[in-house]
Design a binder for these strands. Structure first.
Length: 852
RNA sequence: GCGGGCGUGAUGGAAUGGUAGACAUACCAGACUUAAAAUCUGUUGGGGCAUGGCCCCGUGUGGGUUCGAGUCCCACCGCCCGCACCA
């Protein structure tokens, strides 16, 4: 018998699908449409095993939907702008575009080997001028709709390289190349008004029934709606023009507990004071050290400076609180000023301890021990506590929410403040001081101000003649690209040299796939037909930002007429697959920076890791998310070379549940390969089975159960259980002595059930067993319900919740009859010892529990 | 620091609140073979005993709800992800 040869078979079937156009998406009004999309990859140049897992999952869905009679759209493209291309340009002196398109070509050929059911005719890269030109057109539309504006915002500034750094380029508060201490610096930047949609983006989450709850929870927390109290502190000793200080608090119930007030170092009052007082100026300077990430700000040591000013409590002008400037107060949140209530906020308590400020308990637990001295008491708002010091009766027991409502009402009545709903969500800063991104299509004119480029001049193309020998944005110093006439008045003007955040590129690519060659951003008819994405698949690391930005963009596009109203929630169903993790290999470079190494460059022998190149010892960091920057990526092409794509696909879909992380190990790929070889042998044996045999009925029953279970597995993203079921079915078929007809039917169904996972092998078996046409076009098998039910069922018998015996009864046996038989069982008789049971629970078809 | 999640044999994992460990990997034993590979079959959570059978324990730790908890609730421990300029 010839053995199955993946290296010959796989290219053959890939070619057959391409010639037949099997996966070209076609509008067909006789069929339901299905749009399945996996988050498109960044073209790093190398396919990694995480891609294989992600795209194999999407492919299972796409092929399954094709087989169940849908018009399927399953496209692929490239998220091609971004920082790595500029890093490569710096390190290797290649142009980012050349590097990126080279990577795309390499990765496309790697993708081809996986045999994915992709419609490559719709391919595009976000760095294609055609794509980013449409994006520029939309930017101008958004500008006209008031959805884009400019304001100042802080960036990480490297004072040695004189350049802006991404958060990723800041390590322990220092620039990753220069090692210099990073500073915060303010620049005028472009923003999308995503905050206009805070309420809408929050409330619409309720309609996303097929999104994971954890993603919806994370988005809701990120948007962070709170209802709180807006009030003003009077100020004593403040400079001219600062009569009072607006403050927002989410805990009005603690308004009798504050012992200090604090403002951000960037607060206008702080700036005013700094201008007059060198000590304050020095402190504010000190606060500007370190990165801009929230994590960096929140974990930094709490620093405060007593301004000597007094904040006067709105409810009692004689109540004076010291006013501090503090580094943990964020200018972006609320009003840039906070009220410090140490007893009920851990940060405030830490601050109070450090600066020796009093602590006033507003409420205490109803029962149990009182608050520990260095532990703030912060119960959920729904918890019942005893209020001992607030604007109501002392000693009253109520929930925090009740106290907050009462206090808000009181403050409004007395005119001390007012209730206000606030969102944590900030506007989306899209400016990047970098070359390899979509140019922002505006011109700065001394006479006309900010003028959008004329749409007929789009795309504003990136200039080719740039170099990266000097840190910073080459567009800033480009001699001719930057200097242009004003589109409005024709006078000499300058182009905006900032480019767009790459999140912009990935916020609408799903819409572009519906008509990738449209003259505008989208084509109305195509978008109406294919949108929404029926199943979106991607990593959980995108749970907040990418998905929130895409949801915002769909709304903004709808407002500008680029998407139908029905598509403002662009992803009907979301699945977040787990990450593939791997150990990280690192060494210290001579200048102290950390260098990362690819697994293929590292040799591990007797538990000691060294570099293959020069034998230097390598530090092994435990498994973490695979990332280009950490270089802990694995080359799946080696598996494909060795065993074929079907084995790689089968392997990544086996064992681990799709939503969970999986650590890559080389072991197991061989086992997957062995199983596929076995499946081939089973199919051949079925063809050669004797005309008649015994057990036809059992085999076909087993087949229908397999159809049912595998289908359920695919429908519910339980690919690992579908695979396990297919192992069991293969075993059953291999042991069966059934006649040829039954065996061939079972083997063909097995091939069909496997075809979403192992399409090439399945085509081969289909062909071998006389299937008509391509298995990719064949209708998915349907389980016969009559073949699924058993005549008899075995019930475990529990005594006091512990399994003690079992009985086998006809499946329809009445409940009281089941109970009688259970009570008659030996174990129950023994346990009862002549007595009678206290209680008997019979769960039909499941279990019997006897309480004695 | 804040937000979200995860924790089951030697390993990956299965289990609508209903027989914990399906299906694999690994290990061990057997068949086939001169031998090896390949293939096929079987055993394997821990402990105990009167060992062709029975008992006890067991899903990170400690409590709770329930006839019944891996699953639900509370607290704790550990690990992972995100935190707005990585994509």
């Amino acid at each position: 018998m010839p053995r199955y040869d993946a290296s010959k078979s796989e290219p053959f079937w890939q070619d057959a699908w391409a010639r037949a156009g099997t996966f070209v998406a076609r509008r067909n009004d006789d069929k339901p449409k299905y749009y399945v999309l996996e988050m498109f990859p960044y073209p790093s140049g190398a396919l990694h095993i995480g891609h294989v897992r992600n795209y194999s999952m999407g492919d299972v869905i796409a092929r399954y939907k094709l087989a169940t009679g849908h018009a399927v759209l399953h496209p692929m493209g490239w998220d091609a702008f971004g920082l790595p291309a500029e890093n490569a340009a710096q390190e290797r002196h290649v142009h980012p575009g050349e590097w990126t398109y080279g990577n795309i070509a390499a990765m496309k050929s790697q993708f081809a080997r996986l045999g994915l059911s992709l419609d490559w005719s719709r391919e595009f890269a976000t760095c294609d001028p055609d794509y980013y030109g449409q994006q520029q057109a939309m930017f101008i539309d958004f500008l006209e709709k008031g959805l884009v504006y400019r304001k100042n915002a802080v960036v990480n500034w490297d004072p040695v390289d004189m350049t802006v750094l991404a958060n990723e380029q800041v390590e322990d508060g220092r620039g990753w190349r220069s090692g210099a201490l990073v500073e915060r610096r303010e620049l005028t930047q472009w923003f999308f008004k995503i905050s206009d949609y805070s309420e809408e983006l929050l409330s619409a989450l309720d309609r996303l029934d097929n999104w994971p709850d954890k993603v919806k929870t994370m988005q809701a927390n990120w948007i962070g709606r709170s209802r709180g109290l807006q009030f003003r502190f009077g100020l004593k000793g403040a400079p001219e023009g600062f009569d009072d200080l607006p403050v927002y608090t989410t805990r009005p119930d603690t308004m009798r507990g504050p012992t200090f007030a604090a403002i951000a170092p960037e607060h206008p009052l702080a700036r005013k004071l700094a201008a007059e007082n060198p000590e304050i100026a020095a402190f504010c300077e000190e606060c500007r050290r370190g990165g801009t990430s929230e994590e960096a700000l929140e974990t930094a040591e709490k620093l405060g400076f007593d301004t000597g000013l007094k904040a006067l409590h709105p409810a009692d002008p004689d109540w004076e609180l010291p006013l501090y400037i503090a580094n943990f107060v964020l200018m972006d949140y609320g009003t840039g000023a906070v009220i410090g209530c140490p007893a009920h906020d851990q940060r405030d308590l830490d601050f109070a301890r450090k600066y020796d400020l009093p602590v006033i308990d507003v409420f205490e637990p109803v029962e149990g021990p009182a608050r520990a001295p260095d532990r703030a008491f912060v119960p959920p708002k729904t918890e019942t506590v005893r209020y001992v010091c607030w604007f109501g009766d002392a000693g009253i027991v109520q929930t925090c929410q009740q106290a907050m409502d009462t206090t808000l009402a009181l403050f409004e009545e007395k005119g001390w403040g007012e209730a206000r709903t606030q969102y944590r969500l900030r506007d989306w800063g899209l400016s990047r001081q970098r070359y390899w991104g979509c140019p922002i299509p505006v011109v700065h004119c001394d006479a006309c101000g900010v003028v959008p480029e004329k749409k007929e001049n789009l795309p504003v193309r990136l200039p080719e003649d740039v170099n990266f020998d000097i840190p910073g944005n080459p567009l800033d110093r480009h001699p001719t690209w930057r200097d242009v006439p004003c589109p409005a008045c024709g006078a000499a003007a300058k182009r905006e040299t900032d480019t767009m955040d790459t999140f912009v590129d990935s916020s609408w690519y799903y819409a572009r796939f519906t008509s990738p060659a449209a003259q505008g951003p989208t084509d109305a008819a195509e978008a109406a037909y294919w949108m929404n994405v029926d199943q979106y698949i991607g990593g959980v690391e995108h749970a907040i930002l990418h998905l929130l930005y895409a949801r915002f963009f769909a709304r903004a596009m709808q407002a500008c007429g680029h998407l139908p109203e029905t598509a403002i929630e662009p992803f009907d169903a979301l699945f977040t697959q787990g990450m593939v993790t791997h150990e990280i290999y690192q060494t210290a470079a001579p200048d102290g920076r950390t260098e990362y190494h690819l697994p293929q460059d590292v040799e591990i022998r007797d538990g000691v890791a060294t570099l293959k190149a020069d034998g230097r010892p390598v530090t092994v960091i435990p498994s973490a998310k695979m990332s280009k920057s950490k270089k802990n990526v694995v080359d799946p092409l080696e598996i494909i070379d060795l065993y074929g794509a079907d084995t790689a696909r089968w392997f990544v879909l086996s064992d681990s549940p799709p939503e969970r992380d999986v650590e890559w190990t080389a072991a197991g790929a061989e086992a997957a390969s062995k199983h596929l070889a076995r499946v081939w042998r089973i199919a051949e044996a079925a063809r050669e089975a004797p005309e008649t045999g015994k057990g036809d009925e059992e085999l076909l029953r087993e087949m229908h159960k397999a159809i049912h279970d595998v289908t359920m597995g695919i429908e519910s993203f339980g690919f690992n259980t579908s695979v396990a079921r297919l192992y069991a079915f293969a075993s059953a078929l291999s042991k069966s002595r059934a006649g040829r007809r039954a065996q061939v039917e079972a083997a063909r169904v097995m091939a069909q059930l496997m075809s979403p996972m192992t399409p090439h092998l399945s085509e081969e078996i289909w062909h071998l067993l006389g299937g008509e046409g391509l298995i990719a076009d064949a209708r998915w098998p349907v389980a016969d319900p009559a073949m699924l039910v058993e005549d008899e069922v075995t019930l475990p018998i529990q005594i006091n919740g512990k399994r003690r015996d079992e009985i086998t009864v006809p499946k329809d046996l009445p409940k009281d009859e089941v109970e009688a038989r259970a009570l008659a069982s030996q174990a129950v008789q023994k346990a009862l010892d002549g007595g009678s049971p206290k209680k008997v629970i019979v769960v039909p078809g499941r279990i019997v529990n006897v309480v004695v």
